Structures are given as C-alpha cells and as structure tokens.
Amino acid sequence: MTAPAEAARPPLDGWAGLEIAVQDAAGARAAAAGGASRVELCTALRMGGLTPSDGIVEAVLAATGGAAGFVQALVRSRGGGYVYDADEVDTMCREIRHLKAAGAHGVVVGALTAKRTIDLAALEQWIEAADGLPVTFHRALDACADPLGQLARLAGSGVGRVLTSGGAVRSIDGLAVLEAMVRQRPAGVEIMAGGGVRIQDIGALVRAGVDAVHLSARVPFVDAHPSGPGGGAQELDSTSVELVGRARRALEAR
C-alpha cells in the first residue's frame, strides 16, 4: 500500500497560493508533494474536466491524508458549453450532495444563460445543495460577454472564489482584466488566475494582485497496454511533481 502523501504546505504567508487540477490519487499525491495549497479534482481534463466519482474523491482523501480544504471537486456533468437545462442542473445538485458525503472539501461550479450571463438560478440551487461547503465559480465566467461586469453579480451569492483567465484564452493575455477584477471584486470573493498558465507567467499574475494561481502541471505519456476496440486514445496525462514544485518556487520568489 502506498503511504499517504505529506500534507499540502500551508498558504504562502497568508496568500491563498497554488491550486493544481488533478484527475486521480496519484495526481493529488504529486500536487501535495510539490507544494500545492489545494487541488481541483476532476476527470477528463482534456475535455475541460468532468465531475469525479465518489470513489475518486475517497481515494484522493486517503492518498493525501485529508488535509483540510485540500480537495475541491469540479461539478460538471458533461462537456460542451455551460448552458444547462433543468435536468442537468438537478443532476449536478445530486452530484454535489454525493461529493459532500464522500468528503470533498469544496465544489467548483459554473453555469450561464443563453444570453451569456451568469445563471444565478442554477447557481443558487447548487449552493443550496453544497449546504455550507465552499463554492468556486469556474471559467464559465470567461465565456460571458462581459466577464468583469458579470463578476459583480456574484456579490452575496455564496461564491467565495472565482477561477478566471480575465476572459482570454491564456491568463497572461487577460492581465488587464484580471487587475480590474481584483480591484472590483465583490467582498469576500478571491480571484484565482487560471487558463493556460505557464511557470514563467506566475510572477506577472501575482503582480496583477490575484489571490491564487491554478494550473494542471500535467505531462503526457503513452499507455503501453493495448486498449482494444473502442478503448480510446492511448496518450494519457499525469501530474508532474517537478512542475508543481517549480510553480511553488515561482510563488515563493514573488
């Protein structure tokens, strides 16, 4: 049996720090060993991430020692856009309740209306289902017509953190909007930069005033075992301890 990873290092001098997107227990161990403050746990990162199973949550908690606040679970029942019908919203409510029961420390959600505004009605249902768990609003915000304007609508919603690239494909290209988000964010809401983050971008993102940085720190590898008909692509991803460590050092050097 593999020993649990060392607990994640504490926040950096009061700064919220480093979040790593991971898909499994091995990825969570690598993130913790490299110095992540927390992980966003999901499956299918190459699709943008989907809801992890209860079993994956339990395995990650066992692998990392269950450090408080470490496991933030993505709630996204399918790939594609962020406009959801009533059945999909209900499905994700059920997923949130299951994730909480499995021990997740927080959930990551996001929904838009057909007019590319935040779907506050869906968000309210998910926050109710979370029943006190911390809630992060993900990069659905970056698909809004006006990300900065929509950020203000999260005031008093129960969302405590926003993951955003400032509306750009890569966070480094959204610096001006990120800086404005930091200045104009609702009270009690952290701004976490994420989206195509490279190690060399971290210093500039920190100087923009964000509270945290989010990246996947993953490297591809080829599954040597045959997948068989219908088995899908054999190129997979794993979380790199070395990349997480470099990101941590970049934060410490800020």
Results as ranks from 00 to 15, higher is better:
139 R>E: 07
145 A>I: 00
191 I>R: 04
177 V>K: 01
54 D>N: 11
127 I>A: 05
45 L>P: 03
20 I>D: 01
175 L>C: 07
52 P>N: 12
238 S>P: 00
149 G>P: 02
61 L>K: 15
58 E>F: 00
79 G>R: 10
23 Q>N: 13
249 R>S: 13
160 G>M: 07
81 G>W: 07
93 C>S: 03
4 P>N: 10
236 L>F: 15
64 T>E: 05
133 L>V: 08
15 W>F: 14
144 C>W: 02
15 W>E: 09
27 G>H: 14
209 G>F: 09
25 A>F: 12
60 V>D: 00
237 D>H: 11
183 R>L: 11
78 R>I: 01
18 L>I: 14
234 Q>A: 15
97 R>C: 03
85 D>Q: 02
140 A>P: 10
150 Q>T: 11
75 V>L: 12
51 T>A: 06
129 A>F: 02
171 S>L: 11
248 R>C: 04
248 R>Y: 08
117 T>P: 01
205 L>Q: 04
176 A>D: 15
31 A>S: 07
144 C>N: 04
11 P>C: 10
207 R>W: 00
138 H>S: 09
76 R>F: 06
120 L>E: 03
53 S>K: 07
1 M>V: 12
51 T>N: 05
252 E>L: 15
49 G>H: 11
106 G>P: 12
137 F>K: 06
69 G>Q: 07
73 A>V: 06
91 T>F: 02
145 A>G: 14
231 G>N: 09
213 V>D: 02
54 D>Y: 01
250 A>H: 07
158 G>I: 14
44 A>V: 00
177 V>S: 01
125 Q>I: 02
113 T>F: 03
186 P>D: 09
149 G>K: 00
45 L>Y: 06
190 E>K: 12
197 V>T: 13
195 G>I: 11
254 R>E: 08
139 R>W: 10
250 A>T: 03
226 P>K: 01
48 G>M: 12
193 A>Y: 10
49 G>W: 10
30 A>Q: 12
